[in-house]
């Protein structure tokens, strides 16, 4: 019955201004449409992808390699949605 999967991928942050409010807002929204738990790891810190404040505190800048993992039934699609947001330039 438990079809939960854990998956992981590395995404390069394409937003010029880094992980600021605009991409965070989009990321939170994208992840919240899924039931999977998504975490973003960067620079020895990790953040719940639903928590805007934790994401901000990662201090990720343009070009940062963000290490994403997700677990849950829709982990794969959650990560794809997250990647789509983070790898877009936002321009």
């Amino acid at each position: 019955m438990d079809e939960s999967v854990t998956t992981r991928r590395i995404v390069k942050l394409a937003h010029r201004n880094g992980l600021h409010l605009t991409p965070i807002q989009l990321l939170v929204k994208a992840v919240s449409d899924h039931s999977a738990v998504v975490r973003v790891h960067f620079g020895g810190k990790s953040a719940n992808a639903r928590s805007a404040m934790e994401l901000m505190l990662l201090g990720a800048t343009f070009g940062a390699n963000l290490d994403l993992d997700a677990s849950g039934v829709d982990a794969e699609s959650a990560l794809s949605a997250a990647e789509a947001v983070l790898s877009a330039t936002g321009d």
Partner: peptide, 13 residues
Amino acid sequence: FSAHLLMAKDPRL
């Protein structure tokens, strides 16, 4: 305000 809302709805809080 959407930034504020984002923070207010932050599960961390």
